[in-house]
Every structure is written in C-alpha cells, then in structure tokens.
C-alpha cells in the first residue's frame, strides 16, 4: 500500500489548522511587535463559544461558528483596549507586553476550565461516522474538506485585504515604524485594535477547526500557539504569506520524517526544524 498520498493529505490538513494560528499571530505581531502568548487560548476560546451555541444550546452550526469567531475577535479587541493599549501608552517594552499576555493566557485558560471543565469536548457528531472521500487512495473526511476550503478562503481574503485596503497599508506602515505612522496621520491605536479583532477572529476559525477535527481541551491553546509561532518563524515573522508557507513546511516535514523514523519523534522533528531556521535563516523563508 502506498501511503504517500495519505501522508500528503495528513500534512495539508494539519498545516491548514496551524496556518490559521500562524497567519493571525503574524498579523498581530506585525502591528504590535510583541509575542502574544494568549493567542492560542483565544483561538480555543472561539472554539468553546461555538461549542456552547452549537452543542449546549443546539443552535445552527454555521451561526454558532460565526458567533464563536466574533466572540473571540471581540475578546482580542477588549484585551487590547484594557491591557495592551495602556501598556503601549506607557511605552512598555516587548518583554512587559509578553508577560502581560502570559497573565491573560493563564486567566483565560482557567476561566474556560471553570465553565467547560477540563474534559475534551468535540464539536463533531460522534454518533455517526463522518462522510469519507477517497483521493488517490487517501481518505479525507467531509469536515476536513471544509477546513481546507476555509483555509483557502481566509488566505485569499486576507491577502486581498492587506494589499488593497487602507487598513492593510496602515498595518504595514505601523509595523515599519509606529512613530512615523502616527506622524503621517494614521490612528495607530485604532488600527492595532482592528488587527487584534481580525487576528483573534481568524485564530478562532483555527480553534473551531480543531474542535471539529480532534476536539477541544482548555490547555491545548499553548501547544497550538507553539506550532503557530514555529510556523510563523519558519515562514518569516510578521509576514502573512510566510506564515502560510511556514505552516505547510512544518507539517510536511514533521509528517514525512516519521515515514522513516518512529512516530514518537514527530514533535522533536518539528522543533529541530525550528532551531535550524533560527540558526541559519532567522528571518524565515520570506523576509519582510
């Protein structure tokens, strides 16, 4: 049996979930220049909100997903307004912002644990088998096809949005130099707030995808973010295109490496790749 097609599919599926995290992380990083450690947990938060409306209240699946995305976006925006913005105004260093985000991460994770318990929750319907499709001998589920389509749509929309709108240009200006951007009349705080909203919303799509794909757990946010950050660094920190490429490079390497060596090394390989990039090409595949 040829397992290469299945390995390619597995890599693409895992890659598209990580891509949501990596892209949104880079979007926020591009505007704010700090490592937002709460980002993964905000993604999971979106997944849990969707879970709440869809499974607990029994609402429509698509509506629940949209509510989850909006709620996460709003939460990201609120955190920026009440925590990061005051810190920025006081000219806090990136390190202080990072520590603040670790605080947000811990508090948010505990809150999710209180409301949804620490047990795994799944968004998919487990009482029936998911519909399966076969491509070149590899199987893919209906849910996974949706995830792939969503990743594709998000990628296209985001690229168009960043390239052709004032917002996209403003984000670029701010990441080049926030002070100068201010001088030329860009309302930097408004743009940063907006990028928090959009970034957290995109991350939530990833969180919801995880909820459908493998299930949600309050503590998985950090691991998700670690993979997202690795992909972002491999692809090029702050670059949205790079994040997409990084996510797929990471999952292809991790999945194909265990084709030859035993499966328990998957994580190790992913992080060795990250170290190789940090040493030899610290600015990633696509330099900004």
């Amino acid at each position: 049996m040829n397992i290469v097609p299945q390995l390619i599919l597995n890599s693409i599926i895992a890659g598209s979930i990580i891509a949501f995290l990596a892209v949104s992380f880079n979007l926020i990083y591009g505007a704010t220049r700090f490592f937002n450690m709460a980002h993964g947990t905000i993604a999971i938060f979106g997944g849990y909100i969707a879970f709440f409306f869809f499974k607990t209240l029994g609402w429509n699946m698509y509506l629940s997903a949209i509510l989850g995305i909006l709620a996460a976006g709003l939460l990201g925006y609120i955190f920026d307004r009440i925590i990061y913005l005051p810190l920025r105004k006081r000219k806090a260093s990136g390190m202080i912002m990072l520590v603040a985000s670790i605080g947000v991460f811990t508090a948010l994770q505990s809150l999710i644990q209180i409301f949804f318990t620490s047990e795994f929750q799944t968004l998919s319907d487990i009482s029936v088998h998911d519909r399966l499709y076969t491509i070149f001998g590899a199987t893919i589920t209906q849910t996974q096809i949706y995830i792939l389509i969503m990743a594709f749509i998000v990628a296209i929309c985001l690229i168009i949005f960043l390239k052709y709108t004032i917002f996209g240009k403003a984000v670029k200006a701010i990441s080049d130099d926030e002070e100068v951007a201010k001088i030329v009349g860009i309302n930097t705080n408004k743009i940063i707030g907006l990028s928090f909203f959009i970034g957290s919303g995109i991350a939530a799509i990833g969180g919801i995808a995880v909820g459908f794909d493998t299930g949600l757990n309050p503590t998985m946010g950090m691991k998700l973010l670690l993979h997202g950050i690795s992909a972002a660094i491999i692809g090029g920190v702050g670059s949205v295109y790079g994040a997409f490429i990084g996510a797929f490079v990471l999952t292809f390497v991790a999945n194909f490496s265990i084709f030859w060596i035993s499966g328990e090394w998957q994580e190790a390989v992913a992080f060795v790749l990250l170290i190789i990039f940090l040493i030899f090409r610290p600015r990633g595949i696509i330099k900004r």
Partner: peptide, 21 residues
C-alpha cells in the same frame, strides 16, 4: 508495526497511516 504518539498529541494520523500500511 509499533508506533508511539505523544501522550497529549491529538493528531495521530500519520502513525495510523503507517500502521494501516
């Protein structure tokens, strides 16, 4: 076949693919 998966890793697709093969 004998494949390991990290205790908290939620994605074991590649390991399962190898086992299936």
């Amino acid at each position: 076949a004998s494949e390991g998966v990290e205790r908290t890793a939620t994605d074991a697709r590649t390991q399962i693919t190898k086992i299936k093969a």
